[in-house]
Amino acid sequence: MKNSLKLIFSFIVIFFGCEKEVDLKIDESESKLVLNAWFKTEQHPVVEVNRSTFIFDKRGTDIIQNAEVILFENDKEIGFLEHFGGGFYQNENIEIKPDTEYKITAKVDGFEDITAIEKSLKKFTDSEYEFEYESFPNPSGSNYQSLSDIEIRLKDNGSSEDIYLFLIKDTNKSWRHETSSDTLYNEFIIYLNSSDAQIEYIYAPNLGQIQILRDELFNGKEYTLNFRSNDLRKYEYSDEERSYISQNVIEIHKISKSFYLYLKSIENNQYPDPFTEPTQIYTNVENGYGILATSSVTNIQVDEVAENNNE
């Protein structure tokens, strides 16, 4: 159907139209600093600094390794973040406190200083949810031998507007017994499926498929979510030469409104589809782009080993 429309659209342009280059004055021809950070309560802060490029610049975006990144807590400077590779900065001596306002400034010669302010989230405690899962043979028998049904019961705190983010990370590690130095780690976000209409599925580049749930319909009440995923159980393999372990970790976050708006705008941004409404990517970074996202996370590690393990 979309093709029919494109055909008609093309017809109009081909038979009636002509094309010429135009010079539209875009006040965006210079690069800006991009600050991306995901602060998790009770973890140390990590910040990535890049630069954007003008839409027509043939160069891609690039990392910034010489930025001066300063962190403020309730408007009080608490330390520098040091570059440790790939445009990422951190300070392992600082831990993000719950329910506290953080400000980051980043300065780089030749760029305008950028600032982002966001409040961290209260600690997400184990009493705020219950988790159960059940693994069973895949009825279709294809690709994955087993699947898991997951049930998460949220006990929402009615005092605030909460936005939940769910993801499952499949962390795998393999190594040769002779040379343990060539250990390989990989981390994937695996796909979750739910029939719950309240779930918003968002695909974020560099993060993968994540699931969002807002508490609009159950604020202050219990809410049960059901997902289906690949087998959640641990998988171990070992032979004479090498070993392999695959383990799933379920992360349940409460995220800030800014983070939610950013993810939604990333999802909606479908450039350059002419049939889709253009979407600006949300930013809370002053004079630049990016996001200072905050969340409070609880991790659930599944230690049960699959019965067909080591086959």
């Binding site: 991306n36 995901w38 990535e48 560099n206 990517i281």
Partner: peptide, 30 residues
């Protein structure tokens, strides 16, 4: 109008396969 190319949020370099999912640039609109 689209005005800039911007790198999206990566979780951290601890995920050393951060770009596994592909696009490391998104288009920022005005």
């Amino acid at each position: 109008l689209p005005i800039a190319k911007v790198p999206p949020l990566s979780e951290s370099p601890r995920n050393n396969n951060a770009n596994y999912y592909g696009n490391d640039e998104v288009y920022q609109y005005s």
